[in-house]
Amino acid sequence: MTIISVLLILSCLWLLGSSRLHVAIRVVAIQGVLLGVLPLVRSMGDIGFGVGVLGLSTIISKAILLPWLMNTCLRLSGIRKEIEPFVGFGPSLLCGTALLGLAVWITDRLQLSQAQVPQVLLISSFFAILVGLFLMVTRRKAITQSLAYLVMENGVYGVGVSMSLDFPFIVELGILLDVFVGVFLMGNLLFHLDREFEHLDADKLTELSDLSKSTPVVVEAVEENA
């Protein structure tokens, strides 16, 4: 379990430091595999039906389906392969150090009712959440932001598994489905954004260049549609 937590932290750091989109997608897929194995390791060998289904469905959705979706989106939109950060990769890693410290602090401050909660796993999960938020704010492309959303969800899942395994697995599966639908919609949205504006730069979306010269009435109509 310590190994999985350490790998989770390392994969998050990799995401902070990597400049290639398809590498980032692969790292998120690896995270999916790690998280899928996690409930199996956490239950210490006595693998029930629920735990098995949870692990398997996590691996299928997070490590196979969603990365595939992302890759398709990447290919169809034909965007450039580099991640464009607002905060450079070196400073991102330094911020990552700070976030790691914050995750340790949060975990340290938590009043845990159970003694057997694995603290390192908790730290790495909080770290994944924080890194997800950080990536969402500091990366320019819309597709990176949905990746960041996935990382954050991975963290939430990790916290869930580390807190308790008896958490009804139906709920976890429901969350998985939500995430899947969410990312699916995002992919769809990204594709349409790309076709409409010919770029996926979230920073420029505030301008809405097509409508800048038109009358306010049209803008209102668009807002209603949204």
């Binding site: 310590t2 990552g96 150090t97 790691l100 340790v104 975990t107 340290d108 730290i123």
Partner: peptide, 12 residues
């Protein structure tokens, strides 16, 4: 950071 993670694992 690798060493820092080792430190965290050792402490927590």
């Amino acid at each position: 950071l690798l060493s820092l993670i080792a430190l965290i694992v050792r402490l927590m």
